[in-house]
Amino acid sequence: MTLRFHKMHGLGNDFVVIDARKGAVALDAARVRALADRRTGIGCDQLILIGPGTETDVTMRIWNGDGSEVQACGNATRCVPVLLGRDCTIETVAGTLHARLADNGATVDMGAPRFDWEALPLAFAMDTRRMPVGWGLLDTPAAVGVGNPHLVFFVDDPYAIDLAAIGPEIETDPLFPERINVNVAGIRSRGEVVMRTWERGAGLTQACGTGACATFAAGRRLGLLDATVRLDLPGGALTLAESDDGHLLMSGPAVHVFSGETSL
């Protein structure tokens, strides 16, 4: 079977996007891993499947490069209106998202963050504002659910942390039954943050949209950040804002790199 795909990225967080609105495409973990392989496949951090919507314009399913399916991906969500060429509503496992074209990319309403331990989930009840746990130099993280579960460690210098070494340990800790995404963030001012992310199932990435949302939400909850901030990631910058109803609005670039065909 010949499969048509699009290669896209948001701040270097790259995707293989398959438009299945006119015909179903059968995917499983093994096929996703094969397509995501950077040496023998197309190569990507995540694979995105766009399908026809019923009460929304489209549906979106998301797999990490290791074949695990996840609930949300902020950078991929920005790619959807760019691919469609119009504003749209998107049905995901995490709920309905609204995305609109803006300034070489898109703005996405990512909904309201969740802070209850059951929603993440954690293995047992714990205050998610400043969790009484630690791994090496990283301790007392905040936990936030933004479709995907995230930990946020506020540190002096995110680039001084060996995230490639400690990220896998935290991701797979028994405290997190569904694994966890790990963010280290440094606050430069109330309006600017620098951040790096270890993504569950993908490892170190150039950018993580849900991680940016989680970091912003954690900073707002702790009273450290203003209602609009610039968030700098290795791949570039996002703008995060909090709406009057408490929703997280994420704005940033999304790029269509090329289209192609491969054998499924």
Rank of each mutant, 00 (worst) to 15 (best):
R4N: 14
M8Q: 07
H9I: 13
G10C: 08
G12K: 07
F15C: 10
R21M: 10
A29L: 04
R31P: 02
A34P: 12
A36G: 03
R38Y: 09
R39M: 10
G41R: 05
D45T: 03
L49Y: 09
G51C: 07
G53Y: 06
N64L: 09
V70C: 10
A76K: 06
P81S: 07
L97R: 00
T107S: 15
G111H: 02
A112V: 12
W117L: 04
W117M: 06
A119P: 04
L122S: 01
R129S: 13
R130Q: 14
P132D: 03
N148E: 01
P149C: 12
V152N: 00
P168E: 09
E169W: 11
E169L: 15
P174N: 12
R179W: 03
A185I: 08
S189I: 02
R190Y: 03
E199V: 10
E199C: 09
E199L: 09
G201R: 02
L204T: 08
A207E: 00
C208L: 09
A212V: 12
C213T: 06
C213G: 05
T215A: 14
F216A: 05
F216T: 01
G219R: 00
L222P: 01
R230D: 06
L240A: 14
H247M: 07
A254T: 02
V255I: 14
H256T: 07
H256R: 13
L264G: 07
